[in-house]
């Protein structure tokens, strides 16, 4: 049984009615195509109207949707001959971070990303995509290896945040994130960052310093979860809806704020309703962005990436 969000319910109900009617007409040999077409039209209209008017809180729910394609899904759909690589060479292999080498339209690329689980069991083993320091260090190792072999890096962001716990603190969660930010900035290769689901604060940014930052239409990227923001500012986690609005965490908002460079459209209804269509749309955008960076000299890649982050933030006075 797939997870259904509240605001998707009327649509799901209509769709199941259509399915029911279709099988009924086939069973009884009755021609109900007029009624069915009518319902389909209504479903399309409903879908358009729901998704044209999503609130920031609904975007948050979509970004966290358990059926939303994760990093591994996109890797499977977008890259050929992908080979997963493991470990940070210091401490362990963090299953919350996925990485390796694959072919994108014939070109070798290094892929890294946070990886949420598909179900509860996998989520427990992958820590819901929340990385420990060793995960960030694995990602950095793979990126520095990409530089050696002049491979572009494609980085998928999808995490509620960096792991919070005793071991993570002991092994230097802050140090690991800080190192990634600095060292990603000087890599002499193209880096393309794609926010595919939940871009959770510093744990997301630790994989997120790139030449181009793409963001899927229904992904979010935020300094703090709306729940966390509401409970700190208003001592009331239930005001998360309000916080989601105030935080300006949707792809459109972040495009306006120039935090992201491009919003990648999703199929109507969201990536979880049609992962292959979502991957097709992403492939087009990724190909175009890779192409635009292909012939840029290494020094200029570094310089442009630097300028992008150096200039974020308007200040009065």
């Amino acid at each position: 049984m797939p997870a259904v969000l509240d605001f998707e319910k009327p649509l799901i109900e209509l769709e199941s009615k259509i399915a029911e009617l279709t099988s009924f007409s086939e069973e009884k040999g009755l021609d109900l195509s007029d009624e069915i077409d009518n319902l389909k039209r209504r479903a399309d209209e409903l879908k358009s109207s729901i998704f044209a008017n999503l609130t920031p809180w609904q975007q948050v729910q979509l970004a966290r949707h358990p059926d939303r394609p994760n990093t591994e899904d996109y890797v499977r759909m977008l890259f050929e001959d992908f080979l997963e690589l493991h470990g940070d060479r210091c401490y362990s292999d963090d299953p919350a971070i996925y990485g390796g080498i694959g072919l994108f339209q014939g070109t070798s690329v290094t892929v890294i990303g946070h990886l949420k689980g598909r179900d509860t069991k996998e989520n427990v083993s992958r820590n819901f995509g929340m990385a420990h320091p060793e995960g960030f260090r694995k990602a950095l190792r793979l990126m520095e290896q990409a530089e050696k072999f002049r491979r572009p890096v494609i980085s998928f962001l999808d995490t509620p945040g960096a792991h919070c716990g005793i071991g993570a603190e002991e092994r230097g969660q802050s140090q690991a994130i800080a190192q990634n930010l600095l060292r990603m900035s000087v890599l002499r290769i193209p880096i393309i960052v794609i926010v595919i689901g939940e871009g959770g604060s510093g744990g997301a940014l630790a994989l997120g310093v790139g030449n181009r930052t793409l963001m899927l239409e229904h992904a979010i990227f935020s300094v703090i979860t709306p729940e966390g923001c509401a409970s700190i500012l208003w001592k009331d986690a239930a005001r998360a809806r309000e916080a989601a609005e105030a935080l300006k965490l949707t792809a459109q908002d972040l495009l306006s704020l120039r935090i992201v460079d491009e919003v990648v459209p999703e199929p109507l209804g969201g990536a979880h309703r049609d992962p292959y269509a979502a991957a097709d749309l992403l492939r087009k955008s990724l190909a175009r962005n890779l192409e635009s960076l292909k012939d840029v000299p290494p020094e200029e890649l570094v310089q442009r990436r630097y300028a992008k982050y150096r200039n974020i933030g308007s200040v009065g006075g």
Binding site: I177, L181, S201, G202, L205, F221, S222, V223, A246, L247, K248, L249, L254, L257, I259, Y309, I312, G313, S314
Partner: peptide, 8 residues
């Protein structure tokens, strides 16, 4: 918000 996060 994200403007602050990006200061990192």
């Amino acid at each position: 918000g994200m403007v602050a996060l990006m200061q990192m």
